[in-house]
């Protein structure tokens, strides 16, 4: 299964990549990161770009660092790079919990966090976690750099705020080192993508939920926060009853008529899955919240 023919350029700097995007503006041009969404799409003919600009080896897009309580993850870090970073696990527990469930070992050794977020696949595992982590996506283009909050980045299926000559350069996440982060997912039995995935980021003090951020992907055409679930959690004791009640609010503010609906799962089924997997993400949070206390 060969992709259609295309021209390939390897960029060595962000500026060079932006220049290449501008030079090839008249062609159908795609940025190539790890290629684990793009290459399968090209092989099946869903995508036939004329030009690929490889940014996978641009040094400035790598590295994970903590700066003033903010975790910075270069866009071209592979999933395995992020999981291998103690800083990322400590400061972005919901994001790393979601990354652990992406694809499989080989996919995580090759796919990138930036490629995932910029591709904006609604069934990807990261949009919900990016939202609950309050991530900011930093992009660079011909007019310089700008920062886009995750909740303003996604427009819909495969559609983002990224301009035609802009590149996602890094993801900034405010430290959530005091929170527990979890992700629960119903994978498609064939592709492994999320039919529904729920990310949770909670701070819990003495059994009481102080703050709660819950986000979902797979259910709608882009990641969404589940505000009513969050409201039902804050101030309550994190127990079975609270969790069951909160999870029951998972679809309250979603237009269920617009839920993703395909051969694998109807919108109605997804709505049901959303409640179940919200519950599972919260149950996992109970387990994780208990773990550090036991170690003290």
């Amino acid at each position: 299964m060969y992709p259609d023919e295309f021209d390939y350029y390897e960029a060595t700097t962000i500026e060079e990549a932006i220049d290449l995007l501008e030079d090839n503006a008249m062609e159908e041009t795609e940025l190539l990161a790890g290629g684990h969404s793009l290459l399968p799409a090209m092989k099946t003919g869903l995508s036939s770009p004329d030009v690929l600009i490889d940014i996978g080896e641009v040094d400035a897009l790598h590295g994970v660092a903590v700066d003033d309580e903010t975790l910075e993850i270069g866009a071209m870090n592979r999933y395995s790079d992020v999981l291998g970073s103690e800083d990322a696990r400590e400061h972005a527990p919901a994001l790393t919990a979601a990354i652990e469930r992406v694809g499989d070992r080989q996919v995580r050794n090759r796919g990138t966090i930036g490629g995932n977020l910029a591709h904006a696949d609604p069934a990807s595992d990261l949009p919900g976690a990016a939202l609950v982590s309050d991530a900011t996506l930093v992009v660079q283009g011909p007019d310089g750099e700008r920062s886009i909050p995750a909740d303003e980045f996604y427009y819909g299926m495969y559609a983002t705020d990224l301009g035609p000559a802009e590149i996602l350069t890094k993801i900034e996440v405010p430290s959530a080192a005091d929170a527990v982060g979890t992700y629960a997912k119903k994978p498609s039995p064939s592709s492994g993508y999320a039919m529904v995935g729920v990310a949770a980021l909670l701070t819990v003090d003495d059994g009481t939920v102080e703050s709660a951020r819950i986000g979902a992907n797979g259910a709608m055409d882009h990641g969404v926060r589940l505000d009513p679930v969050e409201e039902a959690l804050v101030g309550e004791s994190l127990d079975e009853e609270t969790i069951a009640t909160a999870a029951g609010h998972a679809t309250d503010e979603l237009d269920t008529a617009l839920m993703m609906d395909d051969l694998q799962a109807s919108g109605e089924f997804r709505a049901q899955l959303l409640e179940v997997y919200t519950e599972r993400a919260l149950e996992a949070a109970v387990d994780r919240a208990a773990a550090p206390a036991a170690a003290d």
């Binding site: 290629g35 499989d104 996919v107 050794n109």
Partner: peptide, 25 residues
């Protein structure tokens, strides 16, 4: 289609699916 893993090789010491990597990469 990067699902079955039959094409797995090590690329710079990490297992990857070689059907989903361009040779130029």
């Amino acid at each position: 289609s990067s699902l079955c893993g039959a094409c797995t090789v090590h690329l710079d010491d990490d297992a990857v699916k070689s059907c989903t990597v361009l040779a130029v990469q």
